[in-house]
Amino acid sequence: MRHTLAVLVENKFGVLSRVAGLFSRRGYNIDSLAVGITENPNISRMTIVVRGDEHVLEQVIKQLNKLIDVIRVMDLGAEESVDRELALIKVNADKDNRAEIIQIVDIFRARIIDVAAHSLTIEVTGDEGKIEAIENLLKPFGIMEMARTGKIALKRGSKSP
């Protein structure tokens, strides 16, 4: 079972290693982790996707809460939250298949952000499923490089934490 956690932390050096260390030494698996500052420059937001049963999830949340630099931990269930991920994909492209790739990009409402003689670099945003789908369609052309941000997420509705 995969869970998405939103973790608000003090924007201090070392906080990332405190959180990452907690996961590694207790043997919890992180699928993805994204960090960035929030509307308050003193607070960073980590979005962590973690794998485990309810017992593991409960321990993860409690252990995170024990860290002094962790201000708040929220378990974002799938229904009550919105999430997105961004990927950059550099794909082999020449004059014969460029049109076909552009068509795929259009269908996915992705963007081309760099064009070179033998490659296109594509920016795509969406949920995990969408990113995996475009990746699969682009694979036959030859993906040269790919970078994914990991998921970021917010709770739905007008309530802020």
């Binding site: 070392g14 290693s17 405190r18 260390g21 030494r25 860290l67 002094i68 630099d69």
Partner: peptide, 14 residues
């Protein structure tokens, strides 16, 4: 030492 003691302190400071 802050890196080394991270898992064995309640909190630490540099």
């Amino acid at each position: 030492i802050t890196g080394i003691t991270m898992p064995i302190t309640k909190h630490n400071y540099l």
